Computed example of a mutant assay.
Amino acid sequence: MDDIAMDDDPTSDDADIVDEDILTQPFPGGPTDPSILKSFKSHVATAIWNGADERGLLKCHNYLFKISSWPWWERGNNATFVNIAEMSGLAQLACYTYRFVNKIVVSNFVESWQPETNTCHLTVGEMTITLDDVATILGLPIVGKFMRKLSERRAIALVVNTLEIDEQEVTHEMYSAGDNSVRLEWLRAYFHNVTDNDSMERIACVDRAYLLFLLGCSLFSDKTGTRVPVVYLSLLSNLTTVSSYAWGAAALAYLYRQMGYASRSDVK
């Protein structure tokens, strides 16, 4: 099977704080072989082991209010747009954002998370989140095609061609957002309204913009909560094949990576 393979997320601020020197030393009182579980030296468990104050509860981001700001499900005369969005298999993500999360439980799981194995090390053994969990909870495909990273020039061309926006304006927006991304609010403001009276080209552009917006608010959100990498547009250019990608596998890989970042002692 062809699992989707996402490149490193360019939007994560935590990617810049890795100290490679401390990732190659053993955890005191833990593994003595530095080739096993190397990142324990920078793990939050190490800080606690050494007597540091616990960092408190992690903040769990929720962008439900952003999704609610683009209420396509409440609008009339937009059946064509709705049908295309639903055919993609991603439209249901608008309903899956949580209204409440137990920060104590989440924080405790993060403190027991080990990036090398992508598992929680508990007193009862190891446990993890599986592809089956993702498929069951989100209803997303876990096998399918993959994507590749884009250069800045190709990223700009991708936005221009798929969303039909002037190149100069796209360049300015991506420069403002940074990291080959566009702002979520920019997408909503530009494409918030569409009806069946619009051309099929316009409806298709709005669908791509909305699905990109939805991905930035759900599966691939970052702690800024303001932008989304345009690389995902490469998967949305042909709206009839969006459902053929392994979105569930990508979501799980992204979650694993973010859990790994959150397990570092200097991440708040």
Results as ranks from 00 to 15, higher is better:
G56F: 00
G56V: 02
L58S: 06
L58D: 11
K59Q: 13
K59R: 10
C60K: 10
H61L: 14
K66F: 15
K66A: 09
S69R: 14
P71W: 09
W72D: 03
W72N: 07
W72Y: 15
W73P: 06
E74I: 08
N78G: 05
A79T: 15
T80H: 13
F81H: 11
V82N: 06
V82Y: 12
A85F: 02
A85N: 03
E86T: 12
G89F: 06
L90R: 10
L90A: 11
Q92C: 05
Q92D: 14
Q92G: 06
Q92Y: 03
L93H: 03
A94T: 13
C95K: 10
Y98M: 07
Y98I: 05
Y98R: 12
R99L: 08
R99C: 08
R99K: 10
R99T: 09
V101A: 07
K103A: 14
I104K: 14
V105H: 05
S107T: 15
S107V: 02
F109V: 05
V110K: 02
V110R: 02
E111L: 08
S112D: 09
S112N: 11
S112T: 11
S112W: 03
W113R: 00
W113K: 00
P115L: 03
P115A: 04
E116H: 10
H121A: 12
L122W: 04
V124E: 07
G125A: 12
M127T: 15
M127F: 04
I129M: 13
I129K: 09
L131H: 09
L131D: 10
D133H: 12
D133F: 02
A135L: 05
I137S: 03
L138Q: 00
L140V: 07
I142Y: 01
V143E: 06
G144P: 01
K145I: 04
F146I: 00
F146C: 04
F146E: 04
R148L: 04
R148V: 08
